[in-house]
């Protein structure tokens, strides 16, 4: 028994017939084809699948696709404007806030919500704020730095930190 579900993801309307048991994360990956949202566990611990649903950061493995009927969803693919990275994406790059990059999309989505709620968090607040997202590569050190840098950039609306490493791409 399939049910029709429609939602807006990154500004595009998606309409599909899905099984009611389909988790939103699979819907995003397989039906919408947005594979930046990753799956890292079966128990909603790792946060690799974090997306934004109607302004709230949500682990998309905790939601059935049909529950997102009519929702406005933002995934990692929806953050950059053209070639311009979102300040959090830029800060993760500048501060070496990622290594294998698998947890990164979820981590960035969690960081986005954190900074929206608390634009100037302390180190402790950042650490508590991303506690629901696991990273095995970075020891979180540079993720915390990246969120601090993003916080400063977003507060001032300024460009990159002067001390950020040289851009060579």
């Amino acid at each position: 028994m399939r049910r029709k579900v429609s939602m807006t993801i990154n500004g595009t309307q998606y309409e599909h017939e899905v099984e009611p048991r389909l988790l939103l994360v699979y819907h995003i990956r397989e039906n919408a084809g947005l594979t930046g949202t990753h799956i890292g566990c079966d128990t909603s611990n790792c946060g690799a699948c974090t997306v934004e649903i109607d302004g709230h950061s949500v682990k998309s493995c905790t939601v059935f696709a049909v529950q997102a009927e009519g929702a406005q969803i933002t995934t990692i693919e929806g953050l950059a404007k053209g070639n311009e990275l979102h300040p959090i994406q830029q800060a993760f790059w500048d501060e070496h806030g990622l290594q294998c990059g698998y947890c990164t999309p979820g981590m960035i989505m969690a960081a986005k919500q954190l900074l929206e709620r608390n634009p100037n968090p302390s180190e402790r607040e950042i650490r508590l704020g991303i506690e629901g997202n696991l990273c095995r590569c970075t020891g979180y050190h540079n993720i915390v730095k990246a969120i601090q840098t993003a916080s400063k950039v977003m507060a001032t609306g300024a460009g990159k930190e002067a001390k950020a490493p040289a851009t060579v791409s």
Binding site: R29, L34, T35, G36, T37, H38, I39, T75, I76, E77, L79, A80, L85, Q89, F92, W93, D94, H96, L98, G101, Y102, T104, P105, I108, A164, P165, A166, T167, V168, S169
Partner: peptide
């Protein structure tokens, strides 16, 4: 000796990396 930013990262921070399941 230079702390050059990684060229791997733009794909990975934008969710356009290519892991096996992708």
């Amino acid at each position: 000796g230079a702390s050059i930013k990684r060229r791997e990262d733009p794909e990975l921070v934008t969710g356009t990396g290519s892991f096996v399941d992708d």
